[in-house]
Simulated scan of single mutants.
Amino acid sequence: MTTQHVFDEAIALQPQGDGAFAGHTSPAYANMIGPFGGITAAQVLNAVLLHPDRLGEPVAMTVNFAGPVADGPFTIRPRAARTNRSTQHWTVELLQGDELLVTATVFTAARRETWKGHETQMPQVPRPQDTPVTPRHGVEWLQRYEMRFLEGPIPSKWDGTVRDDSLTRLWVRDQPPRPLDYASLTGLADVFFPRIWLRRAKFVPIGTVSMTVYYHADAAHLAAAGTGHLLIQAQGQGFGGGYFDHAGQLWDEQGTLLATTHQVVYYKE
């Protein structure tokens, strides 16, 4: 008997007669309040991936967290806003009852063979096999990922120490290991803890407002990554007025740039 991976259970959606999908939050990906944002983003993307009218593969997605998702059932409504010869633009909404909680745009396209050359290169770091697993404590979703921190772990003391930067770098993969695809890559793009915590070593309330992922690899490249680790890094850019942003990159073990990501996060003093 084959047991379904906990990630696949969490993103499972049931098609409804009106083009919408029904889903349910997963206790395995619980955060301090509501679900881990990365799993919500993966659920939203999965609604597009499962849609019978989808054209091509994901190239970009932006998810806006308009309100907190409560534990329980939800409905996702994807709509192809425009379809061209080789590109497609989607709008997606996640609702609980009549309350709109998440909005998103997804851009898909039929990829073509072209010249390519990434300027963002993977840094030279110890291999995952030479990097010890970092113990994970706290909220449930952290147990769903194997993390091997190289730089910038979550502060061990909340003493207000101010760092010059907020760079975090680590090897990570699903736990238990799972073959990489667009949905799991989306979740992995959100495993970074808030940059404000690292920059100031102060545990302040936060909430992601908007998350964007740009997918630089096609499905074949993701399949080739298999169950291997990804090297991921993120660094804050601007802090102030109650908001900060960060930019992040994700590479496979061979150094292929798979995705880049940006987030805007609210924080409270």
Rank of each mutant, 00 (worst) to 15 (best):
K116C: 12
H5A: 10
T103I: 05
Q14A: 15
R169H: 02
T168G: 11
G117P: 10
S166I: 09
Q14N: 13
V191C: 06
R200F: 14
D98M: 11
V213N: 04
L231M: 12
G67I: 05
Q249I: 01
P123N: 07
H262T: 09
P132G: 04
R163P: 04
H24R: 15
R195Q: 14
T186V: 09
D8N: 11
R163M: 02
A10H: 03
P179I: 12
T108R: 07
M211S: 11
V213K: 07
R169F: 04
V265I: 15
G117M: 08
L55W: 05
R199N: 07
T212K: 09
W115Y: 11
D245F: 07
M32G: 13
E146L: 01
T212F: 06
A41T: 12
G242V: 08
N31R: 09
G23H: 08
D53W: 00
L150N: 08
R111E: 13
R144K: 07
G255P: 09
T103D: 01
Q14K: 12
V69Q: 05
P153Y: 03
Y243R: 13
V191Y: 03
Y267F: 15
Y215I: 04
P73T: 14
P177Y: 10
L222N: 03
L49H: 09
A41N: 11
V59K: 05
D245R: 04
I39N: 03
L100E: 00
G117Y: 08
A80W: 03
V213I: 15
E9N: 15
H229D: 12
Y214G: 00
E57G: 01
D181G: 12
G160H: 10
Q96I: 11
A81W: 10
D164W: 02
Y145C: 02
F65C: 05
V106A: 13
H216C: 07
T87N: 12
G72F: 14
L185M: 02
M1F: 08
Q121H: 13
H221D: 14
A22N: 07
D190T: 04
F65D: 02
R148I: 01
N31W: 02
V48M: 06
G240P: 05
G37Q: 02
G138N: 13
T227Q: 15
E269T: 11
R111V: 09
T62Q: 12
G38C: 05
Y267K: 08
G160A: 11
I232P: 00
